[in-house]
């Protein structure tokens, strides 16, 4: 018996690959395209969403037996909005530059489909511990994809990683040029498509006919 039971382990690990919110369920793609032109905002966004979805899951799960069914969406929105505001204020206080790069997308975490999806589909029917694991799993699954996209876009588009020059100067002297298309959102969509392509060809059971 490890730290987690098998069931809880599945709750935590499944969203990382087999049931990934971005590349399998196709949720949260908009922000995955918008904030990933550099690696740093991708990482910050990944952490923010993980924190919000994990704690929103816990709170809703604790309240689940007292929320009247007809107004549950409003209650969920209030909880998420409160958490997003906290995250936003924390970012403004401690990571102002990144917060400016993320601009509206921090506030728009509230409209991220992953959040409402997990609250509706999981937190309303499960206990707080499972809900917490589910939130962390889905947040990390989302974050993982964001970081992969951000890594390739920053590496190929700017030649840097986390703002540090990675591609050596000699390449530029020999005529290498950064790929400007990588910075633009269309290429982010193609990168997502390539990740999905690789993922599906490795997991045959996910392929649709």
């Amino acid at each position: 018996m490890g730290l987690l039971s098998n069931k809880n382990k599945a709750i935590l690990v499944d969203p990382l690959s087999k049931n990934n919110p971005v590349i399998v369920q196709m949720l949260g793609v908009c922000s995955a395209l918008a904030v990933t032109s550099k690696l740093e905002p991708s990482i910050v966004m990944a952490i923010s969403v993980t924190a919000v979805v994990a704690f929103a899951n816990v709170i809703i799960s604790l309240l689940r037996n007292t929320i009247p069914n007809r107004i549950r969406i409003i209650v969920q929105l209030v909880v998420v909005a409160a958490l997003v505001t906290i995250v936003s204020e924390v970012l403004k206080a401690f990571a102002y530059d990144v917060n400016k790069q993320l601009s509206v997308f921090v506030g728009l975490i509230i409209t991220n489909c992953i959040l409402m999806g997990r609250l509706e589909a999981f937190a309303l029917g499960n206990g707080p511990w499972e809900s917490f694991l589910d939130g962390v799993g889905n947040g990390l699954g989302y974050g993982l994809i964001l970081i992969i996209i951000g890594f390739f876009r920053e590496l190929l588009g700017s030649g840097t990683l986390l703002g540090i020059q990675v591609i050596p100067q000699i390449f530029y002297d020999l005529g290498y040029v950064n790929n400007g298309l990588m910075i633009l959102p269309p290429m982010a969509l193609i990168v997502v498509a390539v990740i999905i392509w690789v993922h599906r060809s490795r997991n045959k059971e996910l392929q649709e006919d």
Binding site: V177, N179, G180, L181, M182, L184
Partner: peptide
């Protein structure tokens, strides 16, 4: 189009 948007200077 790829060349145009990826390497506008060229």
């Amino acid at each position: 189009a790829f060349l145009f948007f990826a390497y506008p200077a060229a």
